[in-house]
Amino acid sequence: MLIITCPWCGARPEVEFRYGGEAHIARPADPSALTDQEWADFLYNRTNPKGLHAERWRHIHGCGRYFNALRDTVSDFFVTTYKAGEARPDVDASSGGSK
C-alpha cells in the first residue's frame, strides 16, 4: 500500500484516496471550436509515461479535496504532491520527497 502525502492533511494510506488520472488536462476554453480529433485528444488520448507522471488524486476519506502528485510509474515512488492549480514542479524522478 502506498503512503500518499495530501497537501492539506499530511501522509495517509492509499485506501483513503481515489485516483483521478493524468493531471493538467485543461478543459477547452472554447469547446465548439474544437475538431473531432482535438476532442479525442482531450477526452481519450493520454501520455501514459513510463517514468514521472503528473496525476490527480482525491482525498475522499479525508478532506475530500483534489490535489496533484508527481509519481514515478516504474517504482510507484511519490516525488512530490502539490495543490490543484499549481504548476507542475520542475523536479526529476530521483528527487527526494514523500514515500
Binding site: Y44, R46, N48, P49
Partner: peptide
Amino acid sequence: GHTSVVMAMAGLRMPLES
C-alpha cells in the same frame, strides 16, 4: 502494457493507460 511507450517512439499518443 508498454504500447504507449513504443508508439511514442513514432510520435503517437494513444488512448491507453497502463
